[in-house]
Design a protein around this nucleic acid. Structure first.
Lengths: 209, 209
DNA sequence: CATCGTAATGTCAGTGACTGACATGAGTCA
DNA sequence: TGACTCATGTCAGTCACTGACATTACGATG
C-alpha cells in the first residue's frame, strides 16, 4: 500500500513495536499524570525498555509526545502532490489542510492531548510550533513553489501563502480544541481558509471597520 | 522618555545592570565558544554572579540569548499604535515590520548572532519561533483586530494577516542574515511585504506558472 | 545448520540545565 | 538608627540527555 513495506523482518517489526509502545506509554502517562510530572524513566519502564532505548528512538521528551506526526506530514505531502497541476494554488492548500482534518477526527484523543499540553507547557508549545508545524509549513512552501514554478528561497510568495495557511490551520485547531474536539474540523478549517481567499479577492487589506 | 523610568533607585539599577551583564557575557561567550559549549556556570562567572542568580533573571539559556528582545516587542507595539486610525491595515503592518528593520541595522552583530544560532541550534530555533516571533505575532494580531474592529479569537482574519506578515519578516531576516547583515533590511522587508499586497490585489492565488 | 556480521538494546557513569530551601547582605523607609 | 524588603549567595537535589562499552537477537551466507 505504501512504499515502506519492503518485506519487514522480525527485527524491524520489533523496533517499530518498541517505538509504538513508547509513544502509547508516554501518551497514557502524560494524560493521567501530566507532562512535567512524568519522567522518561517512568515512560521507559512502562514500555518495558531501558531509558537509553527511549532516547535512541526519540531525541527529546517532546518528540515522544509527537511521535506519530511523521505519518501526518507524509499524508500532507501526499495530499499536496495528488492534486491536478492546473488547480488553483489556494485550492491545493485547502485540500492539504483538510487532509489534516481527517486525521484529527480519527485520532481525536491523541490530538486533543497534544493540543492541551501545547497550550499548558512552554517546551511542548515550542516543539509543536518549531518542529511539527514548521515541517508542515515546509511541505506547503515546497509544493506551492513547485506549482508557481519559482524558487522558494528567493521568491517570498510561497512562504507567505504557507504562512497564511498555517495561521488558518492554527485557528482551526484552536477552535476545535476549545470545543473539546466535538466540532466539525472540516467546517472550522474551511471557515478559516476562506478568510485567505477573502484577502486575495476583495480589498480586505484596506479600511473597513 | 519611556514610561518605565519611575525614579529608579540604586537597587533597581543594580538589578538591571546585573541583567545586562548576563546578557552581554552570554552573547560574547556564545559567539566565541558556541552555544552548547558554553555552560550557564561559565556565563554566571563571566558576569560575576552565582548561577542561581542567572536563573532568577532568565528562565532558560535560550531566554538569555534573546534577553534584549522585550525592548523590540515594545517598539513593535509602539509602531503599531502610532499609525493613524484610517491607514490601510497592510500599511500599518508594513510600518511595524520596518520598525524591526531599524533595530536590526543598529544592532546588527547581536541580531546576526541570534539568527545564526537559531539556524544551527534546534532549541534556539524553537525559542525564536515559539517565544520571540510568537510574541511579535500576537502584537500584530491584536493591533489588526483592533483596526478591523473584530474579535481576534473568533475572526481568523487578523491572525492570517499576521501570519503572512511574519512569514514575510522571516524571509527578510533570512535573506539579511545570509548576506551577513550587509544588505539593506528595509529593502528586503519591503520586497517580501509587497508579495502580500500582490496576493490581495491581482489573482496571485490562482494558476500563473 | 553453524557461523559471523550487524543492528537493537541494556548497563553504567557521567554532564549540565534548572529548582527549592534557607542564609546573608545591601537598599529603603519610617 | 532600626525594621523591613528584596536581590543575591550557598547548597543539595532532580531529571533530561549522552558517550562508551557489553550483550543479545536477527539475518545473511557458507
Amino acid at each position: 500500500m505504501t512504499d515502506t513495506d519492503a518485506i519487514e523482518g522480525r527485527r524491524d517489526r520489533k523496533k517499530r513495536e518498541t517505538r509504538q509502545r513508547l509513544i502509547d506509554a508516554a501518551a497514557t502517562l502524560f494524560a493521567t499524570t501530566g507532562f512535567a510530572e512524568t519522567t522518561t524513566v517512568d515512560i521507559a519502564e512502562s514500555a518495558d525498555v531501558a531509558q537509553r532505548t527511549l532516547f535512541r528512538h526519540f531525541a527529546t521528551k517532546e518528540a515522544l509526545l509527537y511521535g506519530d506526526m511523521d505519518d501526518l506530514r507524509i499524508a500532507l505531502r501526499a495530499a499536496l502532490e495528488s492534486r491536478p497541476g492546473d488547480e488553483p494554488v489556494l485550492e491545493v492548500v485547502r485540500q492539504a489542510v483538510l487532509s489534516l482534518a481527517d486525521d484529527h477526527q480519527r485520532n481525536a484523543d491523541r490530538r486533543l492531548l497534544q493540543a492541551r499540553l501545547a497550550a499548558a507547557v512552554p517546551s511542548v508549545s515550542a516543539y509543536s510550533r518549531a518542529v511539527v508545524q514548521a515541517s508542515w509549513e515546509r511541505e506547503i512552501i515546497n509544493a506551492v513553489a513547485l506549482r508557481l514554478d519559482t524558487d522558494p528561497i528567493a521568491d517570498p510568495r510561497p512562504e507567505i501563502i504557507a504562512g497564511a495557511a498555517m495561521s488558518a490551520l492554527r485557528v482551526a485547531i484552536r477552535q476545535w480544541t476549545t470545543g473539546g474536539g466535538r466540532a466539525d474540523f472540516v467546517e472550522l478549517a474551511d471557515g478559516a481558509l476562506s478568510a485567505i481567499a477573502d484577502l486575495t479577492s476583495p480589498g480586505a487589506g484596506s479600511t473597513d471597520h
